[in-house]
């Protein structure tokens, strides 16, 4: 499954590398843990929506971030996502449901 395929399911906040293959799914809200554990190339589902989420996403090299439970980035953070070329989606779904629907297609 490619990153761009998720746009059928989730709202696109920023699309960077849509052709990237999703290799895994990862759920975690604690950035301290995500930093050490998020697998490169994974779809990371979280409710933690701040500029540090983007920093962790960039450094761990995840394929994309999915903000669950309607978690939102402010405008400044959205422009940072564009600048850093990080793909971000948003959904009303809870973390488990959002992650499961990706997992079933990976």
């Amino acid at each position: 499954m490619k990153v761009k395929d998720l746009s059928e399911k989730f709202k696109v906040i920023n699309m960077a590398d849509g052709e990237r293959e999703i290799e895994d799914v990862f759920c975690c809200d604690l950035l301290s843990i995500a930093m050490g554990k998020a697998p490169a190339g994974s779809a990371w589902v979280t409710v933690m929506a701040n500029v540090n989420t983007l920093a962790v996403a960039s450094l761990t090299d995840v394929a994309c971030v999915i903000l669950a439970e309607n978690a939102r980035l402010d405008d400044m953070t959205v422009s940072k996502a564009k600048e850093q070329e990080i793909t971000v989606f948003a959904t009303e779904e809870p973390i488990f449901k959002a992650a499961l629907s990706i997992y079933n297609n990976v």
Binding site: L31, S32, A34, G36, N50, T53
Partner: peptide, 15 residues
């Protein structure tokens, strides 16, 4: 902010 879980130095050592 999602930090401060006491994983910083251990993560640095691990990596």
């Amino acid at each position: 902010l999602g930090f401060g879980a006491g994983m910083g130095l251990p993560n640095m050592k691990k990596n």
